[in-house]
Amino acid sequence: MNREPVFKRKTAISYKTEEKTVVRGYDLSELAEEGYSFCDALFVLYQGRIPTEAEEKMLKYEMGVFLEHSMSPSAVAAIGVSAGRPNLPCAIAAAVSTFGGVHGPGAAHGYMLNKYLERAHRDGKTPEEMAKVLVDEYMDAEKPVMGMGQPQHVDSDPRAEPIHVKQEDLELEGVYLRFQRALEQHFHERRKREGRSRVGVNVVGSGNTALMEIGFSPMAGWCLGSVCRGWSCAAHALFNMKKGRAWGASRNEPMVQMIDLSMIKYVGPEDRVVPKQAERQEYARKQKEEGEYKKWAI
């Protein structure tokens, strides 16, 4: 039996011997035996500390409310991948991979807050003053303000405001919530002044604010949110694997399937003749000169 590490690295996260697995100095088995929760262990992992009870409750709430989101890009990816019936982890990995610059951009929101808080510190401004600067700079540049708006929950994200309230109820208000609340206020005021509709805070705006308030870095917060969604996406993939039809194209189902041929709408170049090799060079030269292909190039 070869028990050499798969990857040789100096690490400050954990070590594992024949006797125990230790994370940031704490034996994992002892943590569990003492009755700490999984969320407590996440604080140990990312912050090297045991959290207060209120902090643990906040993380439990945030991850719990973020875990399931029905049909989002992540669940759709998991279901799509599961249609080919690969190993289940492939569907989960695909789901987690969908979290990028738009879907659950927790790190981007966190970096934005940190950047402007740093400016507030440097320029001697309050979070409220700097939040207005942020909103004006983003909106003047016509850039979306991270953490605001949700394409499906257009009338305020059902998770977002309750997270803010929970954070306040748990008396976990700090500089991040103060800044985020001010950001939202200026954002709403400016949109109102411009005659635009109200766009509420989304779960990244409020959830990530809470995560950063309780000490998680933007990157750690992003990981907690996006990876925990993998749990529900796995459930969606499993449902389809166990109760649905593979491929998603069967004509025997009473409902048209996800990739039934009739679901394809083609809007590309018209059907055309493939040039013979003898015609190729002249054909290709002409095609390049005419440049019509550029309309389709992506």
Binding site: E68, H69, S70, M71, V76, I79, Q152, H153, V154, D155, S156, P158, R159, S232, A235, H236, F239, K243, G244, P254, M255, V256, Q257, M258, D260, M263
Partner: peptide, 17 residues
């Protein structure tokens, strides 16, 4: 019937998950 995302697990609308 037209295609829909069928799920026993979860649904959402504008206001709820």
């Amino acid at each position: 019937a037209p295609f829909q995302w069928v799920s026993e697990v979860a649904y959402k609308n504008v206001h709820r998950i």
